[in-house]
Structure formats: structure tokens, C-alpha cells
């Protein structure tokens, strides 16, 4: 029986293994994995082509788009132009729409986090009668189709609409055709998911932390702002990304509550209108669509990790 000692230099000894069997084994393994790689690659290509097609076409000359497939652009890579973007941004009002999307999305995202974190703290760390029942109801609300709520809420809005114009931003102050109406609506629709996600995260924080803070004499408010919020940044970032994308990509709520006010329309509404009026004018549509995708894509690539976390944390989103 051969023995090796730690200090003998033959740690690097190469045992005499027949190289042929080794090579055969490797080859066999590779051949076995070929179908795996091929099918995966095929799916990756299939899934990427539509987005790439859009991106390439949005930089092509209108004449070229109409007369030859986007895949021909590879042959004449210097014919690409940013004219489509200029047209869309200037003549079709996409710049204003982009601005509207930001105005609608940012406050809706902040509001939903505040209100939901507030409620989730109570659900997670306060005892009160009907707590579980109330939370179950919240889970149930996750699956209510938004469409269903539109008519009644629209009726309510028409009763409370304040017709005066909102300074600086434009639109009415509240009700249909107002930014504020959009903020409140998006916040409300985002709440069930947000509360569900945050409550689960808050609930997973160690109990000792709260108890020691209470013993130190901290109030609920203090615990909430100094302990819960800072510790929950992963969940809150995930939620923020989600809510941001959800509001940014929303069409239905904007279509209904903005009441066709063209000055307030976010990009989704704008692009939809372009589709119905420009049908197959792909130089306009592709550029417009890509502008509306740009920010979500940036967020997606920059914050992919949180994005995935958010999905995993609450994959019941309705």
C-alpha cells in the first residue's frame, strides 16, 4: 500500500492513466450534452429575435423598413439612422408622453411603498382582533381583476373631480384627467401585492430585534423608521422595481382614468394611439415602442437581482 507524506514533493505526481479512455469519456460527455446546448440556444435565439428586430428596425430608414427585412441591415450597417427617434420625439409628442409616464410612475411607486409598509408593520408586529381575517381578505384581493373596479371608481371620480388646473404639471387637480387621480388609483391597485410582500418580509425579521428596541424604550414609529425600513431595503427595492414597471407598463388604468386627455397620456397610451393611426408605419411604431421600453430595460439590467427577488418573494401578483 503506497503512502504519501505531506512534505514529499510528489503531490504533483501524474498517475499513469490511459489517455485514450480519458479522451473517450470527455467526448462521450460532450456528445451527450449537445442536444441540451442546441435546444437551449435555439430557445434563447427565438426569445431574443423579436426584441432585436424591433431595435434594429427602429434605426433603419423608412424606405428600407418597407422594402427589405430588418435582417438585411447587417449587410449595410452604416445606413442606420436616428431620424425615426427624432420624428417620434418631436412630431408625435413622445417626449411629452415620456415625461407623463415619469410623473405618473414615480409618485405612485413611492406612495405604495409608504402606505403598504405602514400597514404591513401593523400586520406583522401588532396584535389586534381580526388581524388574520383582514390579512386573508387582502390575499383574496390579489386576484380581483382591475377591470371590474373601473366603472364604480370612475363614477366616484366624476363626483369628486376638481376641475381647476393643477399648476406646473397640468391636468385637473383631482378626479378623471388628473395626475393625482392616477397616483391614488395606482397606489390602491398596487397595495394588496405590496402589503403581502412586505408583511412576509417584516415577519421574517428576528423578533429579538423588536423586543430589544422596545425594551430600550423605542416607540413604534421609531422602530418602524430606524429598524424595520433600513433592514427591509431588499424587499422594498424589489417592490419598488415591480410597482415601477407595473405602473410604467400599464395601459388600462391610464386609458380609463385619464379620459383620453392627450396632454396627460403616458407612453403606453401614446403608442396604442400610434398603432391605431399609423397601422403599419413601422418607422414610427418601432422607435416609439423602443422609447417606451428603454427605461424598463435599463432597470431590468441594472437591478436584475432585485427584480428576481421580487418575483420570488410574492409570486401571486394578480
Amino acid at each position: 500500500m503506497a503512502r504519501r507524506h505531506p512534505s514529499t514533493p510528489d503531490g504533483s505526481t501524474v498517475a499513469a492513466a490511459p489517455p485514450l479512455t480519458l479522451a473517450l469519456g470527455t467526448a462521450r460527455r460532450l456528445a451527450g450534452r449537445l442536444p441540451l446546448h442546441l435546444s437551449l440556444m435555439a430557445l434563447m435565439v427565438l426569445w431574443s429575435i423579436p426584441t432585436i428586430a424591433l431595435l434594429v428596425s427602429s434605426f433603419r430608414d423608412p424606405m428600407a423598413i418597407a422594402s427589405s427585412g430588418w435582417w438585411n441591415a447587417i449587410r449595410e450597417p452604416f445606413d442606420l439612422t436616428a431620424n425615426n427617434y427624432q420624428t417620434v420625439l418631436e412630431k408625435q409628442g413622445m417626449a411629452r408622453a415620456f415625461f407623463n409616464s415619469v410623473i405618473i410612475t414615480v409618485p405612485s411607486t413611492v406612495l405604495v411603498i409608504l402606505v403598504a409598509a405602514w400597514a404591513a408593520y401593523a400586520f406583522a408586529w401588532m396584535k389586534f382582533p381580526t388581524r388574520n381575517l383582514l390579512f386573508l381578505l387582502m390575499v383574496a384581493l390579489l386576484v380581483v381583476p382591475v377591470q371590474m373596479t373601473l366603472i364604480p371608481v370612475l363614477r366616484l371620480y366624476s363626483d369628486v373631480t376638481i376641475n381647476a388646473e393643477l399648476p406646473i404639471l397640468g391636468g385637473r387637480i383631482f378626479g378623471t384627467g388628473s395626475y393625482m387621480g392616477m397616483w391614488v388609483a395606482h397606489t390602491a391597485y398596487g397595495l394588496p401585492f405590496a402589503i403581502y410582500l412586505l408583511r412576509n418580509f417584516f415577519g421574517s425579521l428576528p423578533r429579538d430585534l423588536f423586543e430589544s428596541a422596545y425594551l430600550d424604550g423605542a416607540s413604534d414609529l421609531r422602530v418602524f423608521f430606524r429598524i424595520v425600513l433600513p433592514l427591509s431595503m431588499p424587499a422594498i427595492s424589489a417592490l419598488a422595481i415591480f410597482q415601477f414597471l407595473w405602473v410604467w407598463n400599464d395601459l388600462l388604468v391610464a386609458l380609463i382614468f385619464l379620459g383620453g386627455e392627450p396632454d396627460l397620456a403616458p407612453m403606453t397610451v401614446k403608442v396604442t394611439n400610434l398603432v391605431s393611426s399609423f397601422g403599419t408605419n413601422y418607422q414610427v411604431l418601432t422607435a416609439a415602442a423602443f422609447i417606451s421600453m428603454a427605461l424598463p430595460l435599463v432597470i431590468f439590467f441594472a437591478l436584475q437581482r432585485y427584480f428576481v427577488q421580487g418575483i420570488l418573494a410574492g409570486s401571486v401578483k394578480g
Binding site: A53, M267, S292, F300
Partner: peptide
């Protein structure tokens, strides 16, 4: 990532992409 990207795209943009496709 390549499979996941469409998740970040709005239905409206997806609709444009696929009308084009």
C-alpha cells in the same frame, strides 16, 4: 436574461414588436 427580458416590456410594446413580427 435572454428568456426573461420580455417580462420587463409592456404589453403595448410587446404588441408593437409582434405586429411587426
Amino acid at each position: 436574461s435572454s428568456i426573461f427580458i420580455p417580462m420587463a416590456i409592456s404589453f403595448v410594446a410587446a404588441a408593437v414588436i409582434w405586429r411587426f413580427m
